[in-house]
């Protein structure tokens, strides 16, 4: 491993250690709750980021998948008293299945219409939650059980979510750095070029969409047990936009950017608590500032500054092909 890739890794480990010890240095219980909430949203956003940030498919309806995961967990673990672990896995599976059913007909649509289809899905889920009162408790809602010891306490629940969020982040990072990530970016930036090298465009969009359904389902289950009570009001349509905005503010095609975006946007209304009424105003201002000033997102802000500061190479090298080396490179990769 080279020295350049060691430094960010050391940074990640440092951040992780800080987060894992949060219950011991946090000022109060509320900060732990907030950190757990960030973890829940990030579990969803990490999957959605592959769809939106990498694949370029504009889904604004993931709140529907979140609600499905949350209600599935509440019903299975609460009413039917399944083991919370099995209910958690079932919520993820159901989220993935609903992602498949939603993605199959809609992912062939051009961008804008796809966004509308996901929006319609979120609205339908919201209506169904109200209409199927026997199952979902209707407007009254459902109480949701927690996880068994040692994850029962707020700190334990937080650590559980941190563990799952860390694993999901690692998976998303792996997808991004291997050929899958490149192919997704190609689908986003240049689908014609993607096809020309053999990328199965629809199949890949569907695969990451299903994966994002799984993470949305998991996030829904963890979020529901964190809140311990859910009602239809919890899953307003704006929440779907919120996830989308986390990615846009964080920057497309990055993992760290949307992670920072999720953390900032979740914490922002709480940090400016005296101005709680203006919380949405801050979203708006931040979104406007990012779109106008750094359209590539805050994740790239740092890099953009570096590129400005760092002196450019002055001597432009000449493009000089070397026939012998090129021939060797071609022959080397010839099929047997």
């Amino acid at each position: 491993m080279s020295g350049t890739s060691l430094r960010p890794m050391a940074g990640s480990v440092g951040v992780l250690v800080a987060l894992a010890t949060l219950p011991w240095w946090a000022g109060d219980q509320y900060q732990i709750h907030l950190a757990a909430l960030i973890a829940a949203w990030w579990i969803l956003v990490a999957g959605l980021n592959l769809v939106v940030g990498f694949g370029g498919q504009l889904s604004i309806g993931h709140v529907g998948l979140l609600a499905i995961g949350a209600y599935a967990f509440a019903i299975l673990a609460g009413r039917h008293e399944w083991s919370p672990w099995i209910a958690l896995a079932a919520s993820g599976g159901l989220g993935g299945m609903c992602g498949l059913l939603l993605g199959l007909p809609s992912l062939r649509l051009p961008g804008f219409y796809f966004a509308m289809a996901t929006m319609a899905f979120a609205l339908i889920v919201a209506e169904l939650v109200l209409a199927l009162g026997d199952l979902t408790g209707g407007g009254v809602g459902l109480s949701v059980p927690g996880f068994p010891e040692p994850f029962e306490s707020p700190a334990g629940h937080y650590l559980l979510m941190l563990g799952i969020a860390t694993m999901i982040t690692w998976c998303a990072w792996n997808v991004a750095r291997f050929p899958w990530g490149r192919a997704l970016v190609a689908i986003r930036d240049n689908p014609v070029a993607a096809e020309s090298v053999g990328v199965p465009v629809f199949r890949m969009k569907l695969a990451v969409f299903v994966a994002s359904g799984v993470t949305a389902g998991l996030a829904g289950a963890l979020f529901a047990s964190l809140q311990s009570y859910i009602t239809p009001d919890t899953f307003v349509f704006e929440l779907g936009l919120f996830f989308f905005v986390c990615i846009i503010i964080g920057g497309r095609g990055s993992i760290a950017g949307p992670l920072a975006g999720t953390a900032i946007l979740t914490a922002l209304p709480e940090l400016v608590a005296p101005l709680a009424k203006l919380g949405t105003l801050f979203y708006g201002l931040l979104l406007l500032a990012v779109v106008l000033l750094v359209p590539e997102g805050i994740g790239r802000l740092f890099q953009v500054i570096l590129e400005r500061v760092r002196p450019r190479e002055t001597a432009s090298p000449v493009l000089e092909p070397d026939a012998a080396r090129l021939a060797a490179a071609i022959r080397r990769q010839e099929r047997p």
Partner: peptide, 26 residues
């Protein structure tokens, strides 16, 4: 792909040689 490096752009050409699925990559 404007935001990707030169090397990554070239590597995209080798897509069909990657036989591993989504989960294996994840």
């Amino acid at each position: 792909l404007p935001t990707q490096t030169v090397l990554e752009n070239a590597m995209l050409g080798g897509w069909r040689d990657t036989r591993t699925g989504f989960l294996a990559a994840a």
